[in-house]
Design a protein around this nucleic acid. Structure first.
Length: 364
DNA sequence: TATATCAGCAATTCGCGTTC
DNA sequence: GAACGCGAATTGCTGATATA
């Protein structure tokens, strides 16, 4: 890995993508992912994806070499159906998708395919370093100070960057930052896009390690997120986020990692972890919500078959409609009222300790 | 069998005309 | 005047063939 991170090359990124108007965000990418995967949550051969995209007359290298993850199975190059694809297929284009996609780009884990050069496995390390070292490290997420000039200065002076031109890369990256809504990523609070980014990061890190035949133990998920700078890449670091990572790592593990997208694997996993409970999937194919009992900001959209596993990990289950209309204030009010009613019903004595009270409020 | 060379080809990178 | 985006030159990978 030492060599890979030492060399930065622009790859096809200097060949412009033609994103359209900045106000459209990354909707072109959203569209191409849907087209390339034909709305199916299954790994797709790279050549099939390219064929579908080519017939639309759109460029293909930027999505497949920078935003998606590549791997080879039995000699066939595949693009992985991961969290980014899940979000693209299940939801119409939104600012939430734009930030998740931008995160996929700056995380810069694109995997390997036949013909790829070694450095393409981390195709945008210049963007990764600019965010980690410069935006997070120096600007403290004052994204108003981000500009093409600033990016150009950053790469120009860096010996890791190997290319003839810096201007085109800088203007293109700045353009991508606008489309990907970098300015909305400075938030200190937990938002849904951030939660999605965490799942995507784990999908990619685990797959990347598999390329080197390394398995990843769920107990190491947190450590790996730290190693890849997850917190620095996704806005201001806070204690709330730190605590949330623990809960979300549990949820990710409970749901089975990337096998959460397979109903068959999820059924098997449910049988293993919850042997006394009958497996059941709601008829509605839309994603459900998993909201953590200690902090309703920790809200994740998951495949419907994972609902029971989410409960096992300490999350409440939300129907697809409740997930879409989720109102934080209202949810907290309702939960508090329910807890108070329970207190009344159980004739709670005033001598109860705060700890006991909290326990009861959580429904334990 | 292992290594070197090379042609063919796909992908990357940059220049330049066009557009804003 | 700057930057977008297309076209094409250049780069570098792969696999075939030659050589030791």
């Amino acid at each position: 890995m030492a060599n890979e991170t030492d060399i930065w090359r622009p790859g096809s990124f200097t060949k412009n993508f033609s994103w359209g108007k900045p106000s459209a965000g990354l909707s072109e990418l959203h569209e191409i992912i849907r087209l390339g995967f034909t709305n199916e949550m299954k790994d797709v051969p790279r050549e099939e994806f390219r064929g579908r995209v080519r017939s639309s007359g759109r460029p293909d290298y930027i999505p497949i070499n920078f935003f998606l993850f590549n791997k080879t199975v039995d000699g066939v190059n595949l693009l992985c159906a991961d969290e980014l694809v899940f979000q693209a297929l299940n939801y119409s284009h939104s600012p939430r998708f734009d930030k998740l996609a931008l995160f996929a780009f700056i995380l810069s884990l694109a995997g390997r395919w036949t013909g790829a050069r070694a450095e393409q496995r981390r195709p945008a390390l210049w963007a990764n370093a600019y965010v980690k070292e410069h935006i997070a490290g120096i600007l403290n997420w004052q994204t108003k100070l981000v500009s093409a000039d600033d990016i150009e200065n950053f790469v120009k002076g860096d010996p890791r960057y190997r290319a003839e031109t810096t201007r085109k890369l800088a203007t293109n990256l700045n353009y991508l930052f606008i489309g990907g809504r970098l300015s909305e990523m400075d938030s200190a609070r937990i938002e849904r896009w951030w939660v999605d980014c965490l799942f995507l990061a784990l999908d990619r890190i685990v797959e990347d390690r598999l390329l080197d035949r390394k398995a990843t133990s769920p107990s190491d998920y947190g450590r790996h997120l730290e190693r890849y700078g997850f917190m620095e890449l996704t806005g201001k670091a806070t204690l709330e986020k730190k605590l949330a990572i623990k809960h979300l790592v549990n949820l990710y593990d409970a749901c089975g990692g990337r096998s959460r997208f397979s109903e068959k694997a999820t059924k098997e996993r449910t049988g293993m972890l919850l042997p006394d409970i009958q497996f059941f999937v709601a008829n509605d194919p839309r994603p459900r919500g998993a909201v953590h009992m200690t902090n309703p900001r920790i809200l994740k959209s998951i495949p419907p078959a994972c609902a029971m596993l989410a409960k096992y990990a300490g999350f409440d289950d939300l129907s697809p409609d409740d997930l879409e209309e989720f109102d934080l204030e209202e949810f907290v009010k309702r939960k508090t009222q329910a807890a108070l009613n329970r207190l009344k019903k159980e004739n709670i004595e005033p001598s109860m300790t705060a700890e006991q009270l909290m326990k009861l409020m959580r429904g334990e």
